[in-house]
């Protein structure tokens, strides 16, 4: 095995993820090539840094810092997730209420309530007394009384 081939596979050799035969070939090469052996040592030392950086010490203050950070953000105007959801729900409720109210008013004004099918008609009568006594006839009657 030549130096170039060993260099390509060295990181996998250090991980121990090469097949048995290749592991042995790399090992043989390293025992007879000081340049590759030196590089292997340096690579191993650098990869060991990862193992050291993975050790996270206990830190009880971290949690308090995060919670203080959230409280600070909320004080300065940011809203809690629950409030954000409630805002969306309230906005949706207002829109739905507005649409239904608008539809009912439109039916009354245009006098097309009869054309609306089935069960909806009854609800419209109950909600809108004006449908049973249209405003035009109210004025007409009043006009007659005045006369």
């Amino acid at each position: 095995m030549d130096c170039e081939k060993v260099h390509k596979d060295l990181i996998f050799y250090i991980e121990g993820s090469l097949d048995e035969e290749t592991m042995r070939s790399v090992e043989d090469h390293l025992s007879s090539c000081s340049s590759c052996a030196g590089f292997a040592d340096m690579l191993r030392t650098s990869l060991d840094i990862i193992e050291k950086e993975k050790k996270i010490p206990e830190d009880r203050e971290f949690t308090d810092k995060v919670i203080a950070g959230i409280s600070e953000e909320r004080k300065t105007g940011k809203v809690t997730p629950l409030v954000a959801i409630l805002r969306y729900v309230a906005a949706a409720a207002v829109i739905i209420f507005g649409v239904f109210t608008g539809m009912n008013i439109a039916k009354v004004v245009s006098g097309t309530g009869d054309n609306v099918t089935g069960a909806m008609d009854d609800e419209v009568y109950i909600i809108n007394d004006l449908y049973q006594e249209p405003i035009e006839s109210f004025f007409l009657l009043k006009y007659k009384d005045d006369e």
């Binding site: 996270i56 971290f62 949690t63 919670i67 959230i70 629950l82």
Partner: peptide, 23 residues
């Protein structure tokens, strides 16, 4: 519990994920 803004839930999440996130 997190959506409701419960501090205990925040603490549970931080205790569980602090080390993986820091790594």
């Amino acid at each position: 519990a997190l959506i409701a803004g419960e501090e205990d839930a925040y603490r549970r999440i931080i205790n569980t994920y602090r080390k993986p996130v820091l790594r």
